[in-house]
Amino acid sequence: MSEVSVRKMTVDDIKQVRIVEEACFATPWTEDIYQKELIQNSYAHYYVIEKGKQIVGFCGIWIVVDEAQITNIAILPTYRGCGYGSYLFQYVINQAMLAGSVRLSLEVRVSNLVAQKLYRKFGLKPAGIRKNYYTDNNEDAMVMWVNLNE
């Protein structure tokens, strides 16, 4: 993974992030949502992973006191399976720990076995189901979490 770097997302990145969003999600977030997350939400921290100058993925996390919640993570389909998701996820976990987080959680589609496998690699375990969580098709979400200090 030469020429790969992770950095904080800026407002100037939103257009490229939306390209990733649209390639990955049935109901992508709007530019306005990202503007509010980056400018108004003090709990929100967003990161992009770049190959050269191209944003190939991103991850968002909310950190509230000692709890961290992944809001979203996506890698362009053409870059999946190359380690970018793992690299980015590890980076974000490290940032959460540096901020004092002791627990990390997220929701993932019950059908998204590839993502679940990635999260399990980092120690996340299933904790429950949120029925009809996803508005595009009413799919259930699996809640996963991990204690970061173990």
Score class of each variant (00 low, 15 high):
77 P>I: 10
96 A>S: 09
21 E>A: 08
101 S>T: 05
55 I>D: 09
32 D>W: 06
97 M>A: 05
3 E>R: 06
59 C>E: 04
25 F>D: 01
74 A>Y: 03
51 K>M: 11
106 L>E: 03
9 M>K: 08
70 I>V: 09
109 R>A: 05
65 V>F: 14
75 I>L: 07
69 Q>I: 12
108 V>T: 10
60 G>Q: 08
58 F>G: 03
98 L>Q: 15
3 E>M: 07
49 I>S: 02
58 F>T: 04
76 L>Y: 10
34 Y>P: 01
51 K>E: 14
19 I>C: 14
48 V>C: 11
41 N>Y: 09
108 V>C: 02
83 G>P: 09
4 V>I: 14
39 I>H: 11
37 E>M: 08
14 I>R: 04
36 K>G: 11
14 I>W: 00
51 K>V: 13
85 G>W: 00
89 F>Q: 01
88 L>K: 04
95 Q>D: 11
3 E>W: 05
98 L>S: 13
82 C>V: 13
89 F>G: 01
52 G>Q: 06
95 Q>W: 07
108 V>S: 04
58 F>R: 01
72 N>P: 00
17 V>I: 11
81 G>R: 08
88 L>Y: 03
100 G>N: 13
13 D>A: 05
60 G>V: 00
30 T>I: 14
79 Y>F: 15
107 E>R: 02
43 Y>K: 07
24 C>Y: 04
87 Y>I: 10
52 G>C: 03
21 E>D: 15
83 G>V: 10
91 Y>S: 07
32 D>R: 13
46 Y>H: 03
89 F>I: 05
99 A>P: 06
91 Y>P: 02
72 N>Q: 10
69 Q>N: 13
54 Q>A: 12
78 T>N: 12
74 A>K: 04
34 Y>F: 10
4 V>P: 00
57 G>D: 01
62 W>A: 05
101 S>N: 01
53 K>E: 12
